[in-house]
Structures are given as structure tokens and as C-alpha cells.
Design a protein around this nucleic acid. Structure first.
Lengths: 345, 345
DNA sequence: TTTAGCACTCAATTGTACCGAGTGCTAACT
DNA sequence: AGTTAGCACTCGGTACAATTGAGTGCTAAA
């Protein structure tokens, strides 16, 4: 469906000199956050040509929509299209020595359950890049129940602990309408386990309609589990380095908006999913589909196990972010995660 | 140990007129974020006195350390001590109608396990107040194991699911060094359950030193569980409305620092704990013990069940925050949580 | 002790001039 | 036809002075 290349449109290539100049402008602007003029371009390239020529090229690039001028007597800054061209024609960078070491060390030592690993990974990723990281773990729609167990906390409170085939565990507090003895709980636990084993949460199960205590508890427990489905299905989202937002964007209001967006897990999940669906690995400005992210860019790298996408790592930064480094970091981390999960579960 | 009143020192009371003026200055400054001068004080109080008199009182209040002047020809702003006096002599406010309704509705409808409830509550609290909320759930140091169960995901992966007496559930992926059949896993599960039942994580347990598969798995599972203790003990922290940080503080650097602090769960936990330990319900500026929070204030309200503190709700805002409203919100929410947990578990 | 009166202070605002980075255009050059 | 030197022009940023005004502190009288 989506074209294999990374661009939304098969962008026509610019002639080499223009490309060089565009690249210089983008690189320089990313570095300095300043409009860049013809002289700066000359200094940062070995293009053997006069400023006047560069200027006329700049005019041309502006006409074609790659660059813009904040005001007449200023240099140029890249437009969304300019960044897009830059990213599409970027030669992939590779992570620095120290960072590669950091990643290796991290994955060698990390321990704990999936959620804990992802949470720590999101911190790692944001430390690697100085941007805010987003890690999305896929939900477990298709997972079947491996084990369901009822544990009594006391006579009025039971805990339903359910283990799914993908390794997820959910727990639900049950407050039964009747008093339940330890033995009754154990019996209910056996029945629930038998009832739910190998079912998915989508499936209806035949609950006993008897009136005795055990049957009642079974009914209530199953009802609670199924009622709570949405939250169980929910993808898990981990955000690392949200303080980086404050560094990345100009203007309090922008910072507020971006932080606010990050707080809404559903938005974040769909944002990342949308980008992956479009076949992109980078979404710049309006490509993200969010007004709030007009001056942002989002890098995503899916984590796949057995050809299936089980999650994604992402980085959120300003559109003038250091794409090479950030992409290298995201890809390294996503492939490490892929490796870890392929090897382990 | 700590004095029952809310102040660190038993602050001497000011004479009534000074108190009125100080209160007016604080209130006004909280409202406008501007230095307030003698004329403004006159307008916002019905004190029947001339500006000159107010001025001399202001001078006096400044000498005593309650107020400060940004520069000679400006009005006064409260110092930390000024805010402290204000808070100590505040008559408790009560939540607005609409907000009370919101809280009632929320707690009537909220469902899910403890973590989910706390997470949603943190969002609620930040919506109620326009400040960033912090909810800390106590760890379960003392909790004993109610049930430990080993579930095979496949022949190379086992999941150890442990239920504790306080309703917490932990899970650990075990990658056994040997292949384990379904039957062996079931047997190991039985043994582990018997072994760990009613123990706490602090206790050493006698693991079998036999060399057969089941014994090996048991050893490895128990080792994994005990190795991971720190993360299990860890208090759970939920932060709501971190975007509010951007509104609350002036200066990108301050915003960055505060966000960064909020990212470090351990810091947040100890911050809240420290304040509670000091017997305070509000910590202003340096009272928080964090340089970063020099211009902040933190409100805390413990959640207690059976006389034991099981957690706390907190609000983080600028030192010029609306204390009445924020304190009312924190207290209402904490008492609702107390009620919910007392009734339920 | 309070207050009216007054000189004083100083951040903020406004106005003005100027600098200079950077442009676009044109005419000459290769 | 593309490139370049030369040049007039634009306009944001900075620096400086003048002005304003909110608010003070002091003094002397009530």
C-alpha cells in the first residue's frame, strides 16, 4: 500500500548544487536556530561559487517552497517541505561510540517485567538524544487467557489475577455481594480458571446461572473482567524526558500544548500509529496531523516480533531536530527491543 | 513529635492591622503576579487609614521579613515567611459547588484496580486546581505473599505471578536454564507457592538444593523474585497535569528543572514523605528542601487507612498559588480516597 | 500615632538614530 | 546562459536619551 520509500510524494530531486545549498541551510539552521544567509552557506560548504550565485539559488529554492524568509533583510529558514527533502535525502547516521556503549550496557543489565523495561528504555532513549521519547507497547487484543486465579484478600475482598498468552497480567478487585469463605473462593477460582482458559476477552463465556455462593462469585468475577476490557486492551505508553519539551520549543504556550498532548495517552498512541500506517519514519509539522505539533517532528521506529508490530519507539522534538542522531538512536533502540523480545518471549 | 499546628516555628502573631495588610498584599500578589503598593492595599481592604500609614506598616513588615521589594520604586511582594504566615492564618476554604459535584461523580463512577484509580485521580486533582498533582501510593514492604503461581508461556518462558496481602500483584518473566515441560512447571508452581506463602520479601526462604529440573526452576524463580525486590517495594507515583508546570512558572529554565524533578519518582516520593514527616501540609519554597522548588509550593494530604498512612495526594504549584482552593481540593480528594480504600480493602 | 505634602527613585515605555546582515537587481564578464 | 561584482535598499536589533508614572521614604504638622 504505502510506497517503500520514506517520502509521502516521490519528491523530484533537486539539481546537485541546490541540494547542497538546501542541505547547508537546513543543517546550519538546526544548529543555530537562526535564519541563514548566503555568506553562512559559503562558509559551511566548499561550493566554489560567489555569494550572488548562492543568493539566486536561494531565491529559486524559496520559489519552489523549500525555504522561507522571516522578513526581507533576513536569511532563509527551511519550510516543512525543506525539512522533508532534507530527511528524505539524509544518509543514515550511526550512533556515537559512547552512546552505543550506553545502549549495550543498558540492555545487558536491564531486568524486570516488560513494562519496567519499556519505562526504563524510554528514559534511556531520551538521554541518548535530548528529546522526549515515546514508547508504545501494543495492547493484547488477541491474547487468550492462560490462567485466571481468584485470591482472597479477606472475606469481603477477592482479587482476580489473570495471565494472558502474551505475558500480560491483569488484576481486578472483586467485592462480592455475599460473604465468601476461603474454600468457596478456592472453588470459584477453579471454576473461573476452567471457564476462561484459552478464551479471549472478546468471547462470551457460559457462566453458571445457579444461585449458590460460588456461582455468584464466578458470575461477578467474570463480569468485572469483561467490563474492564477497554483498560486491559489499552496500549501501554511510556514517556521519557518530558522536561526536554521545555528546551525544545520556543514559547510557553507551545510547551504547554505539547505537554498537554503528551498527557493524553490515546492521542499519543494514535499519533504514533498514524505515522506508522502512513509508512513514514518521520513526520514533520503538519504531517503529524496535530495543530499543536506544527513546529515539531516525530520520529518513529516500530518494534516487530515475528513480523508483527508489537510496539514502537518514538522521539518528539522540534522540527529543527538533529534527525541523523535521533533516527540512529530510535532505530538502535527499537532493534535492541526487537532482539530482546524475540529472544525472550 | 511534630507540633500539631501547621507552622514549623510557633510564629508570633502580627497585630491585626499588619495582618490585614499582609494578607491583602499576599492575596493581591497571588492574583496579579505583580508587586503591590500602598494604594492597591487601600482599595482591597476597608482599613480606614491613609496610604502613608500603610506605607509605614509596609516598611515595618519588610523589616520583619514578611515582604520584599524588587526595587526601590516598586510595591512589595511576599517573602517565603510572608506566604508562611498567610498559610498558617488562612481560614480553610471549601470546594466550589461544581467541583464538589465533579469529585462526587468521579468517585461514584471510577473503577478498575488501585493503580488505575490513582492514575485517574491524579488527572482529576489537576483539573480541579490548575496545578500539577502528585499521588503517591505507599509501597508494600510489609506485605506477605498470598499466592505465587508459575504460568508457562512456552517451553522456554515462565511467568511468575505473585499476589501480596495488600492486593498488589507482581509479575516476573523467568527464562529457565533448562527446558521445562508443562507438568514440571505445574509442580514447580505448587512448590513455589508453598515455599513463599505468608513470607515477606525480606525473609530468606529455604530453597531445595536438588539438581532436578523442578528444583532448579524453583530456585531460579525465587532468586528472580528476590533480586527484583527494590522495584516491587517501590512506591507508585502518578503525576497529573504536568503541562500545568508551563503555566505556573516563569522562565523556561525553571519549567525544565521542575519537569525534570517530576520525572524522578524517587525524588518525588521523598519530597512528599519529607513534608509529611515534618508535620506540614504545605511546604513553601526552601521548605521543600529542593533548590529547584525555590519559587514553588507543595501541598500534601495523607491518605490513611486504619490509622496507617498508605499514600498521599499532593499539589505542586508556584509559591503564589491559590492556597485555599488547592488545599480544599487536596483534602477533599484525599478523604475520598481514604473513604474508598477503607470501604473497599 | 497618623497624615498630608513633596522630593526622589527607578523600571518601563517611547522615540530616534544607526548599524549591519542580508537582500535583490543590474550590468558586465566568461 | 550562467556567473559575478557592485550597489542601493530593507528592516530587525541595539543603543541611547527623554519621558512617564507608580510607588516610595522622609519630614513636619495635626
Amino acid at each position: 500500500m504505502a510506497p517503500p520509500n520514506n517520502s509521502a510524494l516521490p519528491s523530484t530531486d533537486l539539481d546537485p548544487r541546490k541540494a547542497t545549498i538546501l542541505e547547508a541551510v537546513v543543517t546550519e539552521h538546526i544548529d543555530t536556530n537562526q535564519p541563514v544567509g548566503s555568506s553562512t552557506v559559503l562558509q559551511s560548504t566548499d561550493i566554489g561559487v560567489s555569494p550572488a550565485t548562492v543568493r539566486s539559488e536561494l531565491v529559486s529554492l524559496e520559489r519552489e517552497g523549500y525555504l522561507a524568509q522571516p522578513h526581507t533583510s533576513a536569511g532563509r529558514i527551511p519550510t516543512e517541505k525543506g525539512y522533508r527533502y532534507f530527511v528524505d535525502h539524509l544518509q543514515r547516521g550511526v550512533l556515537g561510540e559512547a552512546q552505543q556503549f550506553q545502549v549495550r550496557e543498558f540492555f545487558a543489565n536491564v531486568r524486570g517485567d516488560v513494562e519496567a523495561v519499556l519505562e526504563q528504555t524510554s528514559t534511556l532513549l531520551s538521554q541518548l538524544t535530548a528529546y522526549t521519547s515515546v514508547i508504545v507497547g501494543a495492547g493484547h487484543r488477541q491474547a487468550s487467557v492462560l490462567s485466571a486465579q481468584l485470591v482472597s484478600l479477606d472475606t469481603h475482598h477477592l482479587l482476580l489475577v489473570t495471565v494472558y498468552s502474551d505475558g500480560a497480567v491483569s488484576k481486578h478487585t472483586i467485592v462480592p455481594s455475599l460473604e465468601v469463605s476461603y474454600e468457596q473462593a478456592a472453588e470459584a477460582s477453579r471454576q473461573i480458571n476452567a471457564l476462561l482458559l484459552d478464551t479471549t476477552l472478546d468471547q462470551k463465556v457460559q457462566v453458571p446461572s445457579l444461585g449458590d455462593t460460588v456461582a455468584t462469585v464466578v458470575r461477578e468475577a467474570v463480569a468485572t473482567l469483561h467490563a474492564d476490557r477497554p483498560s486491559v486492551e489499552g496500549e501501554s505508553v511510556f514517556i521519557g524526558g518530558s522536561s526536554r519539551v521545555a528546551e525544545s520549543f520556543d514559547g510557553v504556550e507551545t510547551v504547554r500544548r505539547v505537554l498537554n498532548l503528551l498527557e493524553q495517552e490515546l492521542l499519543v498512541v494514535s499519533l504514533v500509529q498514524d505515522i506508522i500506517d502512513k509508512g513514514l519514519s518521520v513526520a514533520i509539522g503538519s504531517e503529524t496531523g496535530h495543530e499543536t505539533l506544527a513546529t515539531s517532528a516525530v520520529i518513529v521506529a516500530p518494534v516487530t516480533v515475528d513480523g508483527e508490530t508489537v510496539g514502537a519507539v518514538g522521539l518528539l522534538g522540534p522540527s529543527r531536530m538533529k534527525y541523523q542522531e535521533a533516527m540512529a538512536a530510535a532505530e538502535t533502540v527499537s532493534s535492541e527491543l526487537t532482539r530482546k523480545f524475540s529472544g525472550e518471549e
